[in-house]
């Protein structure tokens, strides 16, 4: 049975190194007869990290990092309320970024809560920024629809990819298709806001360019899945 030459303790038969000090165990190790170790290795080792302690620390750091400038800006507004019209935009942005960063740490291992929280926060920030202009001008007509479109499509694609049994070129195919859908959606939303009628324009070019690539990748993946060699499939 091996012994650690530094610690002198008996280790498991197949131990390659000492779990206490990390020293490599020589093959012909024998018990140590020293009274004390030769060095101070193994100090500062009464620490074991609490489960979730890193996330709690990250939350506290984020709170300090973002709330310090927020408090400073609020102080400026209190001192000189007429000279800082831009403060509201910075405040809403800071609070929004802090919330976006903190939600995943709070709703750890709960993806649905994280997605809903992030979407709601983004919408809230948009509406907040819009309201700073005096009334709701663009957020409900263009901002919120874009956020919902991008969020829904991204979530659906993510869930779809996560649940795929085999991942390869089909993932790239799905992502390209999602980009095409988002582009069409953006085009419709923007044209509705600008011209008053949903008339897709430039997005059709994107769809025309991405569709064949996405279709080829999907076909390519399927042909590999059913183990049909491409040479045979495309033989002339």
């Amino acid at each position: 049975m091996p012994y650690c030459y530094r610690c002198g303790v008996k280790l498991e038969d197949d131990a390659l190194s000492c779990p206490l000090c990390g020293a490599v165990v020589p093959e012909d190790s024998v018990p140590s007869e020293r009274c004390w170790p030769v060095d101070d290795a193994g100090e500062r080792s009464n620490f074991t990290r609490q489960p979730g302690a890193a996330r709690i620390l990250a939350r506290q750091i984020l709170l300090v990092v973002f709330m310090t400038p927020v408090l400073a800006l609020l102080s400026i507004r209190a001192i000189a309320p007429d000279t800082a019209d831009w403060l509201g935009y910075v405040l809403v942005s800071l609070v929004g970024i802090w919330a976006l960063s903190t939600i995943p740490l709070v709703a750890w291992r709960n993806p649905a809560a994280i997605v809903v929280g992030e979407i709601a926060t983004t919408i809230g920030v948009m509406v907040g920024l819009d309201l700073l202009g005096g009334e709701l001008a663009w957020s409900l007509e263009i901002g919120v629809p874009i956020v919902v479109l991008v969020s829904v499509v991204s979530t659906v694609v993510t869930l779809w990819v996560v649940r795929l049994r085999e991942r390869g070129a089909n993932v790239a195919s799905v992502i390209l298709a999602a980009i095409a859908v988002i582009c069409v959606g953006l085009d419709v939303i923007v044209s509705s806001y600008v011209h008053g009628t949903p008339a897709p324009g430039w997005s059709m070019v994107v769809v025309a360019a991405l569709s064949p690539v996405a279709a080829f990748l999907a076909y390519y993946h399927r042909s590999l899945r059913v183990r049909v060699p491409l040479g045979r499939r495309f033989h002339a």
């Binding site: 530094r6 610690c7 000492c18 779990p19 206490l20 000090c21 004390w36 170790p37 030769v38 060095d39 101070d40 290795a41 193994g42 100090e43 080792s45 009464n46 074991t48 990290r49 609490q50 489960p51």
Partner: peptide, 11 residues
């Protein structure tokens, strides 16, 4: 809730 473990000794 952490788990205490045996540690190396020191001089």
């Amino acid at each position: 809730s952490g788990m205490q473990r045996v540690m190396a000794d020191s001089r």
